[in-house]
């Protein structure tokens, strides 16, 4: 399988602090990969660098064969790279309908956008019920679904998800991950960042473990689930 996303020796700094210390990471076309790790390990920073929200201090980021290090996020969306931000980031005062319309901001093929909107409402029936409600009044789980649906409205090739389980009840988390897996089956490549290591490792095919800005372990997610080190550090055993 060809690599859709490739990071080489990527380093990201906040002023003098090196939050990401030269990591290598690959996501292949059509797969579901995840980065797991504790709070402050540099997972979100890595994702932000990929999404163009932060500029890497060093290293290269290649997406679909082109270097995208330092390319601004709004331009990346047009190239099929969509981010579901940490904490969901729905537009609270806008309705569900308007949020979905914002997701298709870069598209002008109205007909196809309308089709995609119907598809999203099929995939997330809850959003159909809440269609004219302002997004801020919905529950956390519903907002997360809206955030994912909104990102999908840009017809991404690569979907970046930042902590989709954050602040949600375990049952809802399971549902969200089922949905993410369903999205992956439609052919969207996914890179997921998660503190909930068990959920992420059970859903994804390949995983990276990050610790204070470095990748300490990598391999098929199944293997990592059985790794005694991972079990001790991240699965609470």
């Amino acid at each position: 399988m060809p690599a859709l996303l490739n990071l080489e020796k990527v380093e990201v700094r906040y002023g003098g602090i090196r939050a990401v210390k030269g990591i290598d990471l690959t996501v292949n076309e059509g797969e579901m990969a995840c980065i797991v790790g504790a709070n402050g390990a540099g997972k979100t920073t890595t994702l932000k660098a990929v999404a163009g929200l932060l500029e890497p201090a060093a290293g290269s980021i290649t997406y679909a064969g082109k270097s995208i290090a330092g390319v601004r996020s709004f331009a990346l969306v047009r190239q099929g790279l969509a981010l579901v931000p940490e904490g969901r980031g729905v537009f609270g005062q806008l309705t569900v309908a308007e949020n979905l319309a914002m997701g298709a901001y870069v598209r002008d093929d109205e007909h196809a956008v309308a089709e995609d909107r119907e598809r999203m409402l099929g995939l997330f029936p809850r959003l159909k019920e809440r269609y004219q409600q302002s997004a801020g009044t919905m529950s956390g789980g519903e907002q997360q679904m809206l955030a994912i649906a909104r990102a999908l409205m840009s017809r991404p090739r690569l979907l970046l998800l930042d902590e989709p389980s954050m602040g949600l009840a375990p049952l809802i988390v399971e549902k969200i991950f089922e949905t993410i897996a369903a999205v992956a089956r439609t052919g969207v490549t996914i890179l997921l960042v998660e503190q909930n290591a068990r959920m992420a490792l059970e859903t994804c095919q390949r995983a990276y473990v990050m610790e204070s800005g470095e990748i300490t372990l990598t391999g098929p997610a199944r293997d990592l689930l059985d790794d005694p080190q991972v079990r001790a550090a991240y699965l609470g055993e």
Partner: peptide, 24 residues
């Protein structure tokens, strides 16, 4: 308009607005 919605998106959440492809 498109631009009006982009403004509202920025007002609500700037990072998410950028993730939508808006040149903030």
């Amino acid at each position: 308009s498109r631009i009006g919605r982009a403004w509202q998106a920025i007002r609500e959440d700037e990072i998410a607005a950028r993730a939508m492809g808006i040149n903030t």
